[in-house]
């Protein structure tokens, strides 16, 4: 009888030790756990793409807005009436410095996105980037801008909401270039004629009229196709006239003051 009493504590002790020291990992066990880890790795990538990139991008875009408040004041040319190329915009697409803001009321009353040059990693910060082939506002031809659909601020997420006739306002140091949407369509990534000087008439070789083209990816979350918007210049509003009513709420105060 006495021996059972002495064995119990031993068994209990052994069970406690087993709990602290797990069995050595087996090949199958390690493989399984690595597969689960790989799944989490992919899941986290989605979190990064849809959430993390937007955080940093919106911060950077805000820094661009602040920077433009200063450069706009220095670049403003009193008396510019929109006839001829806008002197505040770089003649050649070179650096990543922002030179404009795009307002699209259809995308929301507060929608304002900095515009800068370049379509590489320059656009990885809630901005729109100007294609190298693009002229300045005020010049005949096709000013094309690229923007992300679902990452980095997702600036063109709502492009499918745009309707013919919707206005877009491109602000520079000198005023607002007002464009009216003429066409929203989906093309293959290789259909570069959307960047042609007269985008809705690919046979035209000479620039005719002033166009604004936006490109983004489509369908969302893929790189299969591109969604394209073409808009045509209808008006120029000098800075001194104040912001057009439709975007009055979206224009940051510091970009309002005339130099």
């Amino acid at each position: 009888m006495s021996h059972t009493g002495s064995r119990l504590p031993t068994r209990r002790r052994r069970r406690a030790t087993e709990k602290r020291r797990p069995p050595r990992p087996t090949f199958l066990g390690v493989t399984g756990e690595l597969l689960i880890t790989a799944g989490l790795f992919v899941l986290l990538f989605v979190v990064w793409e849809l959430y993390w990139t937007n955080l940093g991008a919106n911060r950077e875009a805000q820094a661009h807005r602040d920077a433009m408040a200063d450069t706009f004041e220095a670049q403003h040319e009193a008396g510019f009436d929109g006839s001829g190329p806008d002197p505040s915009v770089p003649d050649e697409v070179t650096t990543g410095d922002p030179w404009g803001m795009l307002y699209v009321p259809r995308f929301g009353p507060d929608y304002s996105v900095p515009v800068l040059d370049g379509t590489g990693d320059e656009i990885d910060s809630a901005v729109l980037g100007r294609y190298e082939s693009s002229p300045r506002p005020g010049e005949d031809g096709n000013l094309a801008l690229a923007g992300h659909r679902q990452t980095y601020g997702a600036v063109l997420w709502d492009m499918d909401q745009l309707q013919d006739g919707d206005r877009m306002y491109l602000q520079t140091a000198n005023g607002w270039w007002v464009y009216e949407t003429r066409q929203v369509h989906i093309v293959q990534p290789t259909d570069v004629e959307v960047l042609a000087p007269k985008p809705m008439d690919p046979t035209a070789t000479e620039p005719e009229g002033q166009w604004l083209t936006l490109t983004t990816c489509h369908p969302p979350y893929t790189v299969l196709e591109r969604m394209i918007t073409h808009a045509e210049l209808v008006e120029f509003v000098p800075l001194g006239d104040g912001a057009p009513d439709e975007i009055a709420g979206a224009v940051p105060d510091q970009l309002f003051e005339e130099a």
């Binding site: 790795f41 986290l44 990538f45 990064w48 793409e49 993390w52 379509t119 656009i123 980037g129 294609y131 190298e132 082939s133 690229a146 923007g147 992300h148 659909r149 679902q150 990452t151 980095y152 063109l156 990534p189 290789t190 259909d191 570069v192 959307v194 960047l195 490109t215 983004t216 990816c217 979350y221 893929t222 790189v223 591109r226």
Partner: peptide, 26 residues
């Protein structure tokens, strides 16, 4: 680990452009 993935690994993976490319193939 999550921080290193978010700040370094995923931006590098994204450069291969599987998920997001807003530009035309010029």
């Amino acid at each position: 680990v999550v921080f290193v993935l978010m700040e370094y690994v995923y931006p590098w993976v994204a450069e291969f452009g599987f998920f997001s490319d807003a530009t035309m193939d010029v």
